[in-house]
Design a binder for these strands. Structure first.
Length: 372
DNA sequence: ATTCCTTTGAAGACC
DNA sequence: GGTCTTCAAAGGAAT
């Protein structure tokens, strides 16, 4: 997939994958989208039965018609549009489009018992039954939303971090940024949620860890016992002495942001729980979005990458590649990694030979076939 | 307990 | 430079 090494300005996503649906009737698309849920479910279920059959369904043909060729021509327009978007933050960020922006999604992993009263800290999100985050009203983000002392947080959290919580407007007090980088934060970055304002070690001053930072996998921490006798491999023992590096996760891309936001909604609507199935639906919906709607997420993702870069200038995606090869997991993971690689290759071969693509417009479809 | 599945997009590796 | 691979999230299913 040709990536846009865009001169001037960040690339906003894989342009060739952007869909120019809208040239032929956005309204229809909107209606379609509403009808998606039930159809998605039905489609998905039937697709699980026999994908090749579905390929021939009239419905499938209709959807394919709707998607074929309509992606083209979007990129440039899209970019233009996005330029506009970035200039009108007000329009974009006041929309309820990002309740699930990951840095606002504090509650789940980070605030285990975070049923916070609306007045205490709106950053905390409790997924509502209808799938929308109450965070909607959060954007643009403001310091007002940050309670100095979230009641749900252990009090010693802040003590441990050694950071005083206060509602200073001075970002330099919050960001753990390289010298001078605070000044590099453009005004447009002012909307960044507080959860991004980290202290040392990736902790927010409130004690809330940055979502991109996860503690080293606990999997390896399980002590190994052999008939009651503790056996700790030398390598592991050695590793234990070294301070464990927190794993810095990749910033979420546009689709991931979209998934995060919409997952609950789809789950509620479809009563589906299986992520693989949900992701299929979300993939379809993603392509059904208008370019404006997608643009919002591309812009968000761009800003997230931007901030990620500011926060972790030395971080590279490669770091996490290698986590499986060396580092934490050691030899086992090295082997697993090899297996994984093989599996993926085999899978791809299968898809090439087996016509295993989704009729509803799997965006990889063309890639897969082209590459064969 | 661990891996797989499934999606899109970004980024690194490789040829 | 084009292509391939990995990893981000998520959680049930499979191993």
């Amino acid at each position: 997939m040709p990536q846009l090494s865009s001169g001037g300005g960040d690339d906003l996503g894989a342009n060739d994958e952007m869909i120019a649906f809208k040239d032929e009737g956005e309204q229809e698309e909107k209606i379609q989208e509403n009808a998606f849920t039930e159809r998605d479910l039905a489609d998905l279920k039937s697709s699980l039965v026999n994908e090749s059959e579905i390929n021939q369904s009239p419905n499938a043909a209709a959807v394919r018609r709707g998607q074929q060729g309509e992606h083209r021509g979007f990129p440039e327009k899209h970019r233009e549009h996005l330029d506009g978007v970035s200039k009108q933050d007000g329009g974009m960020y006041k929309t309820p489009a990002y309740p699930g922006y990951p840095f606002l999604m504090l509650p789940d992993p980070y605030l285990p018992n975070s049923s916070v009263s609306p007045s205490s800290n709106k950053v905390s999100v409790v997924q509502q039954s209808h799938g929308m985050h109450p965070l909607t009203s959060l954007l643009p983000y403001s310091n007002e939303h940050f309670s100095p002392s979230p009641p749900h947080l252990p009090t010693d959290m802040s003590q441990k971090t050694g950071v005083h919580r206060h509602q200073s407007q001075d970002l330099s007090g919050y960001y753990s940024l390289p010298p001078g980088s605070v000044g590099q934060i453009t005004p447009s970055m002012g909307w960044f949620p507080h959860s991004l304002m980290l202290g040392p070690s990736g902790m927010h001053p409130t004690g809330i860890p940055h979502p991109a930072i996860v503690p080293p996998s606990g999997k390896q921490d399980h002590d190994q016992y052999d008939r009651g006798m503790y056996v700790k491999p030398q390598v592991e023992a050695k590793r234990e002495k070294e301070p464990k590096k927190p794993v810095i996760k990749k910033p979420l891309n546009a689709f991931m942001l979209y998934m995060k936001e919409m997952r609950a909604k789809v789950i509620a609507e479809c009563t589906l729980k299986e992520s693989a199935a949900i992701n299929q639906i979300l993939g379809r919906r993603w392509h059904a979005l208008t370019r404006e709607e997608q643009a919002k997420y591309y812009e968000l993702a761009r800003k997230e990458r931007q901030l990620h870069m500011q926060l972790y200038p030395t971080w590279s995606a490669r770091d996490n590649y290698e986590a499986g090869l060396s580092g934490v997991a050691g030899e086992k993971s090295k082997a697993d990694w090899g297996k994984k690689k093989r599996r993926k290759r085999e899978k791809q071969q299968d898809s090439n030979t087996g016509q295993m693509f989704c009729w509803w417009g799997n965006p990889r479809e063309s890639e897969t076939r082209d590459s064969s």
